[in-house]
Design a protein around this nucleic acid. Sequence first.
DNA 1: TCTGGGGTCCTAGGACCC
DNA 2: TCTGGGGTCCTAGGACCC
Length: 462
Amino acid sequence: MRDMRRESPHTASKAPVGPEGGSAREAVGADVAAFTERGALPLPPWEGPAILLVDLDAFFASVEQLDHPAWRGKPVIVGGDPDKRGVVSTASYEARPYGVRSAMPSSTAYRLCPHAIWTRGRFDRYREMSNAIMDILRVETPYVQQVSIDEAFLDVSPTPVNREHPVRVAQRVQQRIEEMGVTCSIGVGTSKTIAKIASDMDKPRGLTVVYPGGERDFLAPLPVRTMSGIGAAAEEKLRSCGIRTLGELADADEGMLLRVFGKNGHVMHVRANGGDDAPVAQDDSVKSVSNEMTFAVDLTEREEVEGAIATIAAKVGRRLRRKGLRGRTISLRVRYDDRSVRSVQRQLATPSDDEFAYTPLLYRMMDELWRPGMPVRLIGVGMTGFEDGEGVQESLFDLAEAAPSEDDVRPSIPDARKRRGLIEATDLVKDKFGESAVRFGRELRGEENTTGSASKNPADYK
DNA sequence: TCTGGGGTCCTAGGACCC
DNA sequence: TCTGGGGTCCTAGGACCC
């Protein structure tokens, strides 16, 4: 692992600076071996807010290496099949010198590193590990915002009650996580923006600290793309305005940024100046649930498409029920073989978690997206519009009493009751024997034509 | 045999109401 | 009859993140 880090493109010449202009890594020690020896050294005082971003290193691959000792020290790739339009979810640090990266097509990764150990991933296991690690973080502070399966912000600002130095907290967190069998990189700063960027500076097992007052100098030389929220499109627009670094962004005219980027122009400007004051959020409620399927071979027949919709709709329904959520808005997304995407959404008369209720509506929505002779590459089904107090259950009686509407998909009372019983029974079977144990008529037969990959989204493991 | 899947948030236009 | 705003909801699409 240590050798790999020297090969990382991020580490060279990017040591962050503190108020005295020195390297924070000098003051702090960048790895566990160093900080356990130097742990007693006095640290420069910390005034004001302190945010940590904890990022688990090559998380999925690291869990696989933890669970398979024979895989340790070897290139491990978690991702979809190379011959089925899959992509790399995570590459272990041993695979990265070959050029393998996240989000790369698996076929490319296979060419670069044919001897790598491949696995589709075990997401329940990653979820379990992630939850255990998040519990460790919550021992340090209740102010933990999990942003994905392998990342979380912590607000560890010193208070009159707890004056512990934020860097000491970060060192302890790093050690506790290593005791779990995986490693992490941590950024420490006065805002989420700074902590996030700092955490990316030194991986794996890095600890990068930007002291209060050092924000602008830290950010100024970095390319704009480094900052979260600036992607390919914004980078290109900024470049056409002559802005390439965060320093140039910080000095840019705010009026111009507002004209070009709207509300986001202000946010970008503030953040580039080190002024981000976004709180570590406590709200982690789920806002949408969706499933997508990319087909290894494009679909051309309407019947195949409806079969796929039924399969995906059933997955969404099952996840909604598991979470105790019912949504008011159903959406259908189609990607064609030219990669163009079209989508439609509809309001349901009654919030639903029941695929038998909304699948016929999805078929009608498909009529609007259907392009005869245009092969279908991907289909997605999503539900949004959950009630505020999520998980509130409606009785079957309420379900049948609600006012009818044009797109009403509700059954009669006896139908609803029978169906609910059927759904609960199949959910139980699927809990016990797995997702493919029970299939209904319209659902796709087998998984052979789908491509698998890994999600790091928080909603997927709550 | 290039380019997944799960999310969040924003925008812009239209409908509708007051 | 023509003219306005503002507010909210809905819809489609897109940028962005891990």
